[in-house]
Write a protein that binds this DNA or RNA. Structure first.
Lengths: 201, 201
DNA sequence: CAAATTTGCTAACGGTTGTTAGGCTTGCTA
DNA sequence: TAGCAAGCCTAACAACCGTTAGCAAATTTG
């Protein structure tokens, strides 16, 4: 592995645990066993590392959902595949995922805006699937934007507890999450809906 | 309002938008229209502000779930009430919630450990309700820890998009979330389960 | 073996950080 | 009216920040 990749990887681990701003170049250098100034033989700036991690992860998420959606099928199946794809990317690189999810706001312009735009595009893919499912009468949900955000936020917590050596494989996590988000917690036989303040029946 | 509360509130807004580490005392002073050194007439340190926000929010979450669980009822009802209580606290103070959820890791010891301990206790309350629901056969879910974390993470994304002037009231948000998390996206009539890698039937 | 590239070093820069010391002004209270 | 407290100021501190310059050793490549 190239030295640059090593630096990026070590930095990612530090960014995850301490945050981007609270990680100094001297911290990073110390973790690498070299001097801070030496890092600049390999990278242009501290933010360059953050940029590379954020946009590489964005690429991975898009590639994953492209592959997942290419299979077609019902909205239910497509959503399942999208969830599985998302979980796979998250579990394949938990540290970079954490940075991607939490440290992007330290990007400077124009990267900050670019990132937000990409994120919105990605969320729109989920909204699209859910919208289709609502039209199909596969799904019953008050608002597709609301649903998409809740699903994604449910998925995006994984990196805080997932350990590769844990008892659940990424595929099982994805299945459990699909099941829970699509079917809810309630047993099928129990059809009592929670009482609601909603006016729409 | 006391000057100290003002400082705390202004700091909370900055901590939310820029993060704790990236917010300097001079930034905070500038937002208040005074000099950085003047702040130390009111507080002991920068971290004291973070501590106060984090532990005050923790208190609020505990008070809310205490009140919610005191009503009793089925596991379904208790979970609904807990979700509503959680959403109420989140929406009542979105900025402090964001700090509570994302900036706690910048607490120094022993506050860091204390905070994690409180958070785990709070999560255990949700796990307890879900566990009861599984025993009651109200809920059908592979793992209560998994379910609790997914629910809480679904709730904890609210602060990123919730605006008091938005079209959904906190009560409606809580209802929609309860409905979605308890019943899932799928229409009731459609009983087809997603295909699964799980061995447990 | 020679050239070129990679990798690291020391020293230092200009700027920013959280925080302290000490003093001045304002407004309330005894 | 004297005294006190609240609130803010300037000046400064030691430490730390990201980064650059210039150079030396090591490793790879021709």
């Amino acid at each position: 592995m190239s030295r640059k990749k090593q630096i990026e990887q070590t930095a990612t681990a530090l960014f995850k645990s301490k945050g981007f701003s609270a990680t100094s170049m001297r911290d990073l250098a110390n973790a690498l066993g070299i001097e801070a100034a030496s890092i600049y033989s390999h990278i242009k700036s501290k933010e360059e590392i953050l940029q590379r991690v954020c946009f590489r992860m964005a690429d991975e998420f898009f590639e994953a959902i492209d592959a997942a959606e290419a299979t077609g099928g019902t909205a239910t199946e497509r959503l399942q595949h999208a969830i599985t794809a998302h979980v796979q990317v998250l579990t394949n690189n938990t540290e970079a995922s954490a940075v991607f999810l939490h440290e992007w706001r330290h990007l400077s312009e124009p990267y900050h805006s670019q990132f937000l735009s990409l994120r919105d595009t990605y969320e729109a893919r989920f909204r699209g699937i859910i919208k289709t499912g609502i039209k199909n009468e596969e799904f019953m949900v008050p608002d597709e934007k609301f649903a998409a955000l809740t699903i994604l936020s449910g998925l995006n917590w994984i990196h805080t507890w997932y350990k590769p050596e844990g008892k659940m494989t990424p595929a099982e996590i994805a299945d459990n999450l699909s099941l829970m988000l699509l079917m809810g917690l309630k047993t099928k036989t129990d059809t009592t809906l929670p009482k609601s303040h909603l006016t729409t029946p």
